[in-house]
């Protein structure tokens, strides 16, 4: 099985660490972190990832702005992006769908949901 890589974008260290644990649990070996959209874009200039997990409300660049920038890049148009955010209003869901987000997880999140969605997108068998 090819080595998978994921980029986690969140300004909160607790969330980045939690998501990192979840990613390791499903067997992801290469996990990159960014504290905001600006850092994420800098990392993506030199990096190829299989999946991006991003928060919405972050300083310097919102998750929506980040998704728009990612989708403008021909190299990244098809990279799956999951929003992991406390934003749960219908308007927010719609906005993220219009911006090109692949999937959505609402905070607070059970680990099982995150694992399920990562495994489904990356076609990784779920561990029992």
């Amino acid at each position: 099985m090819a080595t998978r890589s994921i980029l986690i974008v969140d300004d909160m260290k607790t969330v980045r660490l939690k998501l990192k644990q979840v990613c390791k649990d499903v067997g992801i070996e290469n996990i990159y972190e960014a504290v905001d959209g600006v850092q994420a874009l800098q990392l993506l200039e030199g990096l190829s990832v299989d999946l991006i997990l991003s928060d919405w409300n972050m300083p310097n660049m919102t998750g929506i702005e980040l998704v728009a920038k990612i989708r403008e890049n021909p190299r990244l148009t098809k990279t799956p992006i999951i929003f992991i955010t406390s934003e749960n209003e219908k308007g927010a869901i719609l906005k993220s769908l219009m911006s090109g987000v692949t999937d959505y997880i609402v905070k607070p999140f059970p680990d099982a949901i995150v694992k399920q969605k990562i495994c489904a997108l990356l076609k990784i068998p779920m561990k029992p």
Partner: peptide, 15 residues
């Protein structure tokens, strides 16, 4: 993050 989750969750449902 705890306040983010509490405020965000309440905000979304209230809105």
């Amino acid at each position: 993050e705890l306040l983010n989750m509490i405020y965000g969750h309440a905000k979304s449902n209230l809105n």
